[in-house]
Nucleic acid binder design. Structure first.
Lengths: 211, 211
DNA sequence: TTCTTCATGTAATTAGTTACATGATTGA
DNA sequence: TCAATCATGTAACTAATTACATGAAGAA
C-alpha cells in the first residue's frame, strides 16, 4: 500500500524518522535497529539506498560532510516530504504479516522427531528473551523519564505495548506447546489432539471479531 | 536458515506439503492459501516456481497430465525429499518476524491526525475479523471431526492455537489503543503518556524471559 | 604501531511481486 | 452460445539480502 510513485512503506518509514530530526545514514540505521526493526525489518544496505530515493523524490535533502578522506551524508526532510508523510499517515495501513519459520517446522512436525519440536520451542523462548532485553531496557528508561525523544512517549508507548504483548503471547504459547508436546508419544505422527484443549482454542476463536 | 544449497524455507514449506500427499500445482497453491499463508506468506507465482526447484534438487518428481489442450502437473515427494525434509526439521527455525505497516504508521502518528490513528486501528480490527473467519471455520470443523487431514490434528492444533492467540492479542491491543487514543488531545503531537499504563507495560515486560 | 571496533558505503545476487495471458468448465 | 469462474501458467520487474571493501578513531 503506497501512495507517491516509487515511495514504498520502507521509504515512508525512513521519512518518518527524518521528520523527527536530521540524521547521518549511519545513525539512521542504528535508529532503525532500535525501533522500526521490530515492526518493519530491513537490512542495512537497503537503508543506505532509501534516503537517496527520498532525495530523488524531493522528500529529503542530502548534505555531504567530510570526515578525513571519507564522506558522511546528512539527510533532512523537506516541506514536500512532510506533506507526503502526512498523506501516507492518513490512509490505513496493512495488517500484521507474520513470517515464522519455526511455526512452519512445527506444522510439519509429524515428519520429524519430538525432540526437534522441543528444541525449536526452546529456541523460540530464547528468541523472546533476546528481543525482550531491549524492550525492558526501553521501558525502564521511559519510566525513569530517560527514554529517547520524550516528546514521542505517547506514540512509542502504543508500539511498546504491542511488542510486549506479542512477546508475552509467544511465551505463553511456547510454554503451553512444550507441555502439550511432552504428552505426545515419541513418534509425533502418532500424536493425537486433546479434545479439551481443542475446545479451548475454539472457544477463544469464537470470542474474537469474525466469529 | 537453510540446509541443502538452493533450498529455502519456502522450498521446504512446499516439500512439507508434498510429504502429506501428491498435489497438482493449483491445489498446492490453494492448500498454501488455507494453511501456510498465515505463517509463511508467498504469492502464487512463487508457488509455481518452487516445485520445479524441488524437482531439480531431486526432492520431488513431476508428472504431466493432459486436460484437453492444457497440461496439468502433479508433484510427488521422493525418498531423497523425505530425507531432506527430516534434516531441515531437525534444526531449530527462525523466530517470528513481524511486518506491520499499520504499526509503523502509529509509530509516527504524532505527524498525522488522531482520526487517522483511530481509522487505522479500526482497520486492524477488521483485518482480525477477516483472518478469524477462516480460523473459526477450521476450529469448528476439527471439533466436529470433519477437519482436513485428521491424522495431522495434533500438529495443526499447535499452529491453530498460536494463530488464535495472536489474533486475540491483536484484538485486545487494538481495543486498548483505541481507548488510549480517545483520551488524547486532537493534536497527537501533544499527547502525553499515562504513567499508570506505562508502568503496566513495564510490569508485563519484566515478567517475560530476558528481563 | 598494530589491533579492534566504529563508521560508511557499493556490487552482485536472489527472492518475491505484479501483471499478463489463455484454456476448460459450468450454468444461465 | 455467452459470460463467468475455475484452472494453469509465464514474463517482466522490484525489493531485499549477502557479501564485500575500506577508512577513522581509540585502545593496548
Amino acid at each position: 500500500m503506497s501512495t507517491a510513485k516509487g515511495a514504498t512503506t520502507t521509504s515512508f518509514a525512513i521519512l518518518g524518522l527524518l521528520a523527527i530530526k536530521p540524521w547521518t545514514t549511519y545513525d539512521l540505521i542504528r535508529q532503525v535497529d532500535r525501533s522500526l526493526r521490530r515492526m518493519w525489518p530491513r537490512t542495512q544496505s537497503k537503508l543506505y539506498e532509501e534516503p537517496k530515493k527520498l532525495v530523488a523524490l524531493g522528500f529529503a535533502e542530502a548534505t555531504e560532510e567530510r570526515v578525513g578522506k571519507r564522506r558522511r551524508t546528512w539527510y533532512a526532510i523537506t516541506p514536500a516530504g512532510r506533506a507526503a508523510l502526512a498523506g501516507w499517515l492518513a490512509e490505513p495501513g496493512d495488517g500484521p504479516m507474520l513470517e515464522f519459520e519455526q511455526l512452519v517446522k512445527i506444522h510439519f512436525a509429524d515428519r520429524g522427531t519430538k525432540e526437534a519440536v522441543r528444541a525449536g520451542l526452546a529456541a523460540t523462548l530464547a528468541w523472546v528473551a533476546a528481543q525482550n532485553e531491549e524492550n525492558v531496557a526501553a521501558a525502564r528508561a521511559y519510566l525513569d523519564g530517560a527514554g529517547e525523544f520524550p516528546e514521542r512517549a505517547a506514540v512509542n508507548h502504543l508500539v511498546g505495548r504491542f511488542l510486549t504483548d506479542f512477546y508475552a503471547m509467544v511465551t505463553d504459547w511456547a510454554n503451553w506447546a512444550i507441555e502439550t508436546v511432552d504428552t505426545w508419544p515419541d513418534d509425533p505422527s502418532r500424536a493425537t489432539v486433546d479434545p479439551a484443549a481443542l475446545a479451548e482454542t475454539a472457544r477463544r476463536a469464537e470470542q474474537l471479531p469474525g466469529a
